[in-house]
Amino acid sequence: MPARKLFKFMPLFFYSLVFIMALPAQAGDKALLRLATTTSTENSGLLQHLLPAFERDTGIRVHTIAVGTGKALRMGRDGDVDVVLVHAPAAEQAFVEAGYGIERHDVMYNDFILVGPAADPASVKQSQSASDALARIANNACIFISRGDDSGTNKKELKLWSNAAIKPKGNWYREAGQGMGKVLQMAGELSSYTLTDRGTWLAYRSKSPLQLVYQGDPALFNPYGIIAVNPARFPDINHAGAQALINWITSPPGQRLIGNYTIGGTQSFTPSANSGQFALGREPASQAH
């Protein structure tokens, strides 16, 4: 009876499995680095462009966990990752000041843009500023999809609303609680407006019925910083690996790779390490696009 045989061998199966499971325990693997980063760097394809080169140069394998900025910083705070690459300068500053991370390094920037339906019912295309653009959307009660997930993009969006002195509330303002790509899809399906980082937009543009409706306000600047998790709090994290990634990504070769990453022929991130031009909390006067 095959079934009976199966039962007989069950314990054998079980114990050999436990044995096998115990073998590949990888605790303390110094060649493994955990990077928590935002969905924008992953979904835009930038990391797949950068990390293989880093792994080749240093022999360090990188495990990337792509989540919203809020969650990425939380993982860093809890010591569940070794290094974070995120885009929310104020939150990053607080992270470093609280001693969760040791130092923030500029890596690159791109910018946020407003996208919306081609018909542009709120005439956002004629806006004079980002605040003006949001006011037009709010006044016309056109649907606006918010990330609503405490991500860097979400934090930026909320800051823009408060800059414009508007409380985004009502049936037109919808919090999705999803990643950038999902929100762009939703905005496309609902013919509505949303704020997106340029990198993700470039990656989705060809699949989206939406159009770019507003760009260029300095308030839409989107800087990315990298921070090593504080080894004083977690002595056994891979701090050497984190430092190696920081050194590499801010070095000329790493920065060159960022600069030459294009999506559909358009550069999506501008390297900014060590330029001194985009220090924390200071935004550039203007940006050419």
Partner: peptide
């Protein structure tokens, strides 16, 4: 698992990722 490519990305999390990417 964290949906890490070649480590903890399985079929369902890969589907979730591809869907979110459109």
């Amino acid at each position: 698992g964290g949906n890490i490519l070649n480590a903890t990305r399985n079929i369902p999390t890969a589907i979730a990722l591809e869907t979110s990417k459109g």
